Simulated scan of single mutants.
Amino acid sequence: MEQAPATVFEDLAQGVYLEGLAVDHERGVIWYSDVIAGGIHGVRADGTPVATLNPQRMWTGGILLNADGAVLSSGQGGIMWNHPGTGRSGWLIEELEGEPINGINEMWPDGEGGIFFGTNDIEMVIAARESRPTALYRLTQDRRVIPLARGLKFSNGLAFDPVRRSLYCSDTFGCAWAWDVASDLTLSRQRVLLAREDCDGLALDLQGNIWITGFRSPGIIRRVTPEGVEMDPAVTPPGSTTQVRFGGPDQRDIYITLVPADGGDSLKDGKPLSGSSRLCRGRSPVPGVLVVPADFALD
């Protein structure tokens, strides 16, 4: 088995419940969200604050960069965009199949300028009630919406491996799924990747393995081969990891968002959190896949 990453991490930022994570490799900014306190926050690799976007907006679960430097952020009502350099902002998508969007969670580029994304039931999350089924979609570069998969419990972390033609999704409260991806980016052969109910954010390393965070898995990030075989986990600081991303010139810098060990269940049940949340930076023994920007023409 592969050796797990070193356990030395440094804190870059703190918040209430940190989530959606993206690294702007060109500009050297790490963007993260605070789903409870609100806002999208940017810091340098040394923790120096850069900017705060949408400070009053809660429930942002996913962040992705656009090619022009704009920050795409999911959440209640759809996907917004904010350009830190110009101050401009707007909505990338507000409707699905003719209806206002309840919520969108994680996103991942589709390799053709658009994105894959999953919905979530923010209305029920706010009410601390069981979520209704969610789904996966693709938003093309020209903003056409294509349904891909339905009937998920709570779509969460996403990743597309174009080499192995596979899409992975954490279906929180269910399991992590894998699909084959056809040349037209449609999905087939849905199968269980990891049978755990706490699957949260995820990322890929350059060996093709999937790193899956778990809100009931304190102190580790589970690592799984594309065939679903569990490897030695990556060791993390105390708390549960909600998201993981790679960065740095050698692609071995690793950024994680940590919440209290009971944070995920506290959020689900509408209970106060038992502590604060952190953004941390460490080093990985294996390089990870850098998430490339989408390429939408924004107004």
Rank of each mutant, 00 (worst) to 15 (best):
G263I: 01
P226Y: 07
M107D: 07
V229E: 15
P133V: 06
S266A: 15
I30K: 00
H83L: 04
E94I: 09
V125H: 00
G78S: 15
G75D: 03
E94D: 13
T225V: 08
L298G: 04
G282P: 03
R88T: 08
L185I: 07
P226I: 14
V286H: 11
W108P: 04
L148N: 04
V224E: 04
H83M: 04
G174T: 10
T134A: 15
W108K: 11
P84E: 06
P218A: 03
T241D: 02
L194F: 03
E95M: 14
V145W: 08
T213W: 01
A22Q: 11
S33M: 01
D262V: 05
S170N: 13
V50W: 12
P272C: 12
N66W: 10
S217Y: 05
K153G: 08
A149M: 03
Y137R: 04
L267C: 13
N120A: 06
V23A: 01
R252D: 14
F9I: 09
W177C: 05
A149V: 14
G111I: 03
A13G: 07
E95A: 13
D299Q: 03
G15P: 02
G114H: 03
A294F: 05
F117S: 06
R27I: 07
R129F: 02
M107S: 10
L65H: 02
V16Y: 06
A203E: 06
A149S: 08
Q207F: 15
A128M: 07
N82S: 13
R138I: 05
D110H: 06
D200E: 14
R143P: 07
A51V: 09
T134E: 15
T86H: 10
G275A: 11
V286E: 14
S217T: 12
E227I: 00
F246T: 04
K153D: 06
G270M: 08
R278H: 09
S277V: 05
E26T: 13
D269H: 13
D161M: 04
L185M: 07
S284V: 11
L202H: 01
V291P: 00
V181P: 01
P272M: 08
L167A: 13
D198R: 02
N54Y: 14
L279H: 02
G47H: 08
L279V: 05
I212C: 04
E227A: 14
M231P: 02
V291G: 01
E106D: 15
G239Y: 01
T140G: 00
M124P: 02
I93D: 00
A6M: 11
E112M: 13
Y255E: 05
S155A: 11
T186M: 15
P55A: 09
L290P: 03
L273W: 12
L290A: 05
W179F: 05
G174S: 14
F117A: 08
Q76G: 00
S284A: 13
T86E: 06
C169I: 06
G42W: 05
L136Q: 09
H25C: 12
L193A: 04
P272E: 10
P238G: 12
F9Y: 10
A234N: 11
T242Y: 09
S33C: 02
A297K: 11
L53Q: 01
T242E: 07
A261T: 09
V192F: 03
G157K: 01
A127H: 12
E130G: 08
E106Q: 12
Q3S: 12
V192S: 08
D198P: 01
A4Q: 09
H25N: 12
